[in-house]
């Protein structure tokens, strides 16, 4: 009996060791997950498709807080709040940017459906907040007028 217990303990220690090693390695694995295709996409449709955000349903439960007029397109503060239960990811896209995909947030356990970030906008365009929840995609948008573009010289 006591022998079995010893074996069990040893097994547990080994398992924890493996888990720790996996934890140490995870940053590299996560970086490999950087969705290059989505960020390289030159159009909204391509970006949506590459990020698995195609066929999004409109939802007023997604609130996009952004200025109506952004004087400086280099710094446009965007806050996306998702009131949808089970939100697992929030993406922010600016439709008229050369590469529309700006940021994608994967929410871990306990994270609330709210993210705030500042993005660059080349010209006046719609800012999309796209949310993945329960295997479905929801989206809302808000137009931001840009006086001075934030891309290029």
């Amino acid at each position: 009996m006591s022998m079995k217990r010893r074996t069990f303990l040893k097994g547990t220690v080994a398992a924890v060791g493996v888990a720790a090693a996996a934890g140490l390695l995870s940053p590299r694995a996560v970086l490999a997950a950087w969705p290059k295709a989505a960020f390289d996409a030159k159009s909204m449709a391509d970006a949506e498709a590459a990020a698995g955000l195609g066929g999004a349903a409109h939802s007023d439960a997604i609130e996009i807080k952004a200025p109506d007029i952004a004087e400086n397109g280099a710094v446009v503060p965007i806050t996306v709040t998702s009131g949808i239960d089970g939100t697992t990811s929030i993406s922010i896209l600016a439709s008229e940017n050369g590469t529309p995909m700006a940021a994608q947030f994967e929410l871990g356990e306990g994270a609330q459906g709210m993210v705030s970030v500042r993005i660059k906008m080349g010209k006046t365009s719609d800012v999309y907040g796209m949310v993945k929840a329960g295997g479905k995609v929801y989206a809302n948008k808000k137009q931001v007028k840009v006086t001075i573009g934030g891309c290029g010289g």
Partner: peptide
């Protein structure tokens, strides 16, 4: 030690990025 958020960013996030979010607990 528990992952609560992973963000993937492209070049269109502003210089000197700012980030805010909330976590339960």
């Amino acid at each position: 030690g528990k992952r609560v958020m992973t963000a993937y960013w492209g070049g269109s996030v502003s210089k000197n990025p700012y980030l805010a979010f909330n976590v339960n607990g």
